[in-house]
Nucleic acid binder design. Structure first.
Lengths: 343, 343
DNA sequence: TTGTATGCGTTATCAT
DNA sequence: ATGATAACGCATACAA
C-alpha cells in the first residue's frame, strides 16, 4: 500500500501550517477564505484522509462500535438474526461517522469477560452491542464484569440494569400473546405451546405470553406445554408427536411454537399424521426465518425486529457517546405477527 | 468508561522503565527474570492492555481486516452467504491477532471507490475482503481504482489479476457440471437451466458448467435456458411456467436452477401443474439456502463454500501482510452437491 | 540489561 | 486569523 498522505503533506503543499489544515478539516470559521479553498484543493488533489487511529489516540475515542456475539455454536455470526442486527447497526453507524467491529468472544470460566474487555481496551471500541445466546454458564459473570468495568453497551434480549447499560428486547410476551389471541379468535381452545428444554429469557417471555392470553380467555386449565429436547426441527417433530399421541388428552387444534425451526418440525409430524394445516391443526412459529415463506403451507410467525434492534442499539450508543443519553434504559420493540397460510 | 491503564502506569507501579514493560509485553529475552515477573504481576493486577490505536500508529498497521460488501439491496449484510464469510473471516482473524471491520460502502458514479478507499485511509484497514454483488455499474471502476491505490484485497467470486489482489471463486462451473451430470446419470436428457436476466460472473460459470456437461454427453442440442426476470421465487415460478407451457418443445424432465430461490419458485409451479417431484420433474438448486432442508420435498442443491472462503481469504491476507504472499493469486474452492430428495 | 529520546498523525493550547 | 509546541500511548534506535 502506498504511504498515506498526512496532514503535514497537505500543509506543506498548500504552504500553510498544519493547524490551518486541521481547522479547514473541521470547518472552523476562523480560516481566511482564500486559504480555505487552496487547502481544500490540495486535500482533494492529494487524496488526504485524516487517520482515525491518530485522531482516536488524541481524543480518546475510536469511533468504532462493536458487535459482540457470544454463541457456543461455531458459525454464530452466520445466524440470520445476527446478520440483521449487523446490517442495522452498520447502516446507522455509517451515517453517524462510526464503524462496526464484529467479534465472537470466547468465555473462559476463569476470566469470563476477558475477551470482551480486551476489545474495549486494546481496540478502544467506544461501545458495543452484546448478545449472549445459548444456555451456557458464565453469562451473569460476564455482564457484571462489564458493568464493573463501566463499559457502555447495549444488551440484546436480556433485561438488565446498570449505569452505562441499555437493553433492547423484542416484545416476546406481547408477540406470543398476540399470536395466541389470533388463534383464539379463530375459535381454537385447545392450543398447545412447544418450547425447548434449553430455555432462555426471551423464550420464557414467549411462554408467558401464551399463558397470559389463555388465562385472559378463561382457558388457564387448557394450557398445555411440551418441551423439545433442543431447538431443532427434529425436536419440534418429536414434541408434536407427543401432543398427537397423548392418550389422556385430545390433540390440540392449534400450536404455537417457540421458534420457526420447532414449528417446521411440527408441521412434518402433522402432515405425516394425515392432518391438514390449517384446517385440522393450525400453527404459528416465532422468528420469521426465511424459509417460512417457502414451506407448504407458508408458515405464520411472529417476526422479531432484529434489524430495527441493530439500528436503535447503534443510535442509542452513539447518542450516549455524544453526551445525550436516553432517559429510558430499557426498550421493548414491537414484534409483527406475520399471518400466512398455516393459520 | 474508566481511564485506560497505560504502559506508563505499569512502569511506574512496577518501578521500571517504559521500555522494560514493552520488552516484557513482547517477550523479549533480554529482561531480568525478577523484573519480568514483577512487571507481569503489575500488568495482571492493573489490567493493562496495550492500545492498538497507539501501536498501529507507530508501526503503520491497524491489525484490522475489512469485509466490504457492495450490494444495492438495503440489508445486504443479513444475506446468509455474507454471514458465513464474516464468520469464517472472524474465526481466523481472531486466532491470528486481527480484528474484523464490516461495512457496506456505497458506489457513487462520480467517485466509485471513494468509500472503499476511505476505510483504508482513515481506518487504516490493513487489507480487505471485497464482494461486489448485484448487476449495477461501477464495479470495474472500483476494482481498477483499488488496484491503482495498491491496496491489498481479496475479491470474492470474480476473476481478476493484480499485484496486491487475490481472488477466491466457488467452483461454479464444476458445481453446475456435477449437478447436471447427476441428473444425466439418472437418465434425464431433457434438462433445462433457469437463470436470470441479471447475470453476474459466478452465475455465468454455472450456466457454462451446465452446457459443458450437456455437451460432454452429446446433448448440445438439448440445451435449454430460460431466464427469470430477477432472482426471486416469483421469477423462478414464472420461468418454470414458460418451460411447461412451451408449445414447441416437450417439457423438461429435470431442471437446474441458478440459485435456490429460483428453484423454490419453480417447485411451486411444478406442483401447481400437478406434477410430482422428483418423479415427473427433478430439480436442483444452487447456494444451499437454509430453507432447502425444510421444503417438501427437500431441495437438492450445490453448496458454495462461503465459510471456507472467509477463512481462506483472511488467511491469505494476513500471511501476505506478514511477508509471506501465496504463490497462487486465484483459488477455486470446491462446491458440494447436497443430494436431498428433489432428485 | 536497562533507561532516554524521538516520532507516528492528529488535536489543543497557547502565543503571535 | 495563523503558526509553533506539547501531548495522546506506544515502539524503536540509541545511549548508558
Amino acid at each position: 500500500m502506498k504511504p498515506a498522505v498526512t496532514i503535514r503533506d497537505v500543509a506543506q503543499a498548500a504552504g500553510v501550517s498544519i493547524q490551518t489544515v486541521s481547522n479547514v478539516m473541521h470547518g472552523k470559521p476562523s480560516v481566511r477564505a482564500d486559504l480555505q479553498s487552496r487547502v481544500l484543493d490540495v486535500i482533494e488533489q492529494l487524496g488526504y484522509y485524516p487517520s482515525q487511529a491518530a485522531q482516536g489516540l488524541r481524543q480518546r475515542a475510536s469511533h468504532t462500535l462493536g458487535f459482540l456475539v457470544f454463541d457456543p455454536s461455531p458459525r454464530a455470526l452466520a445466524d440470520p438474526v445476527h446478520g440483521e442486527v449487523i446490517a442495522g447497526m452498520c447502516d446507522v453507524a455509517r451515517t453517524l461517522g462510526y464503524n462496526l467491529l464484529v467479534d465472537t468472544p470466547l468465555i473462559r470460566p476463569e476470566a469470563p469477560a476477558e475477551h470482551f474487555l480486551r476489545l474495549f481496551r486494546t481496540r478502544r471500541v467506544d461501545a458495543a452491542v452484546i448478545t449472549l445466546s445459548g444456555r451456557v454458564g458464565g453469562h451473569e459473570e460476564v455482564i457484571s464484569e462489564l458493568i464493573a468495568a463501566e463499559i457502555l453497551f447495549v444488551l440484546l434480549e436480556r433485561e438488565i440494569v446498570g449505569d452505562h447499560v441499555y437493553c433492547l428486547l423484542g416484545a416476546n410476551y406481547a408477540g406470543a400473546y398476540q399470536a395466541t389471541q389470533a388463534m383464539l379468535e379463530r375459535g381454537h381452545t385447545r392450543i398447545a405451546f412447544i418450547d425447548s428444554l434449553q430455555m432462555w429469557p426471551a423464550v420464557d417471555q414467549r411462554l408467558h405470553g401464551y399463558i397470559g392470553a389463555m388465562e385472559a380467555h378463561g382457558l388457564a386449565d387448557a394450557v398445555r406445554v411440551v418441551s423439545s429436547i433442543d431447538w431443532s426441527a427434529e425436536g419440534g417433530a418429536a414434541a408434536m408427536r407427543l401432543l398427537l399421541e397423548d392418550g389422556a388428552l385430545p390433540p390440540p387444534t392449534a400450536v404455537l411454537a417457540g421458534n420457526d425451526l420447532l414449528a417446521i418440525g411440527a408441521m412434518h409430524t402433522i402432515r405425516a399424521a394425515g392432518l391438514r394445516i390449517p384446517e385440522d391443526l393450525a400453527i404459528i412459529g416465532f422468528d420469521d426465518f426465511e424459509f417460512t415463506r417457502y414451506v407448504e403451507p407458508t408458515l405464520s410467525t411472529v417476526r422479531l425486529p432484529s434489524y430495527d434492534m441493530g439500528r436503535q442499539a447503534a443510535q442509542l450508543l452513539i447518542q450516549h457517546l455524544r453526551g445525550e443519553p436516553a432517559t429510558e434504559r430499557c426498550f421493548v420493540l414491537p414484534t409483527e405477527l406475520m399471518l400466512r397460510r398455516s393459520i
